[in-house]
Design a protein around this nucleic acid. Structure first.
Lengths: 209, 209
DNA sequence: GCGTTCAGTGAACGCACGTTCACTAGAGAA
DNA sequence: TTCTCTAGTGAACGTGCGTTCACTGAACGC
């Protein structure tokens, strides 16, 4: 064991597992998950390649764990946001700002999701798609409580949820790609996202299925 | 030379170059461009690895050539569509149907663009982004002629163009991912795209910057 | 205290990769 | 016809990869 001292066996194992996940996330950010090798991950986590197998059967399995960890963070943030009464009152403005802030604070997670959603390995892609579908459904449940929408058909609400998720993913991509130290660009993205959502919401009151 | 007979030197060289591009496009479809090796491309094109260097300096250079070829096809289709008067009259319905039809006929091209837009190598990604920005601007020029929009600010028109392109990219992704032999799914995607665009357009008349 | 468990080690393997080089043979110019 | 030019060849190289294996030593249960 090369470990930082003081630990039970379980703690130490968990620490190494976490180090592997973090290393993989970092490397994915730099060069994409599919281009990231088991040996690179092990090296950055500070263990020998063979030790990798004590935690994951393959890079695919690590990828799935990474998807879970990222969406866990994401879900948590959304739950927090929903509790805030401010958010419900000014749902659009809040959504735009929260989105940008959240993405900025978790660039690695969001970047991983948005990149691997289309580009990555088969199994990782499938997992991300599944999570995003879950998220669409959750959002539909929230949306259906909004005025102007409450008596739409299920299909229409799902469609609108998809439209929103789609644009959130796109917005997240923009923030992830945003070069550091450009607060003007950030404001521009927030403003763009807000306008787009407002435009979509404007259509609500005139919608006929 | 292993070539199919009858040819000048130039013709034969062009044929091999094209075979390399096509091989790379196919392999990208199967496993992603970044995971596609120079040796795989050469093998599928029916030449020895070293021959690759007679046509491209590196896989990056081939990637750029591929981006150009794909967007060439795309631009051509859009120019054709614009000439059709039917399209301007029922712009929404037409756009949805054309999009799905076009993507279906050029799955490889669209798939390459949508996949490598976020996932791929730095230089390929940058090239695709640039092409998409050009496309946004072109679309803005078309949009500004529409009723309800003609006196919007430039920034607002750009925003709406971006919203449309974003959703077209997303729609294209859906079609690319669509499993073969499911015409019901195809109709569903067309219908979804149409509804989304109608919803967005509905907002136009009430928009205030 | 003492034998067991198991996270992490280090060497080894076979394989696919990008790149190089001297070469060959057929098309094109003279 | 003869000489030149060049697209394509085939062998070789060093490198990094995933995976395997027998191993070590500290935490753990008794």
């Amino acid at each position: 064991m090369t470990a930082t001292a003081a630990s039970t066996r379980q703690q130490q194992k968990e620490r190494t597992r976490s180090a592997l996940l973090t290393a993989a996330l970092e490397l994915s950010q730099e060069q994409g998950f599919a281009q990231t090798s088991l040996r690179q991950v092990a090296k950055r986590a500070g263990v020998v390649p063979a030790a990798f197998y004590r935690h994951f059967e393959s890079m695919d399995e690590l990828g799935l764990a990474l998807v879970e960890r990222c969406f866990g963070t994401l879900r948590e943030m959304i739950r927090d946001a929903q509790r805030d009464p401010e958010v419900f009152d000014h749902i659009i403005d809040a959504a735009a700002e929260i989105l940008v802030a959240a993405v900025k604070e978790n660039k690695a997670d969001f970047g991983f999701v948005s990149r691997e959603r289309v580009g990555g390995s088969e199994v990782v892609r499938a997992a991300i798609r599944h999570e995003l579908e879950l998220f669409e459904t959750e959002l539909a449940v929230v949306l259906v409580k909004l005025p102007n929408i409450e008596n739409w058909s299920t299909a229409d609400v799902q469609m609108v949820a998809r439209l929103f998720v789609r644009n959130m993913v796109a917005g997240a991509e923009e923030v992830v790609e945003m070069p550091a130290g450009r607060p003007d660009l950030e404001q521009q993205i927030i403003e763009g996202a807000r306008r787009q959502m407002r435009l979509i919401v404007l259509g609500f009151k005139d919608w006929r299925s």
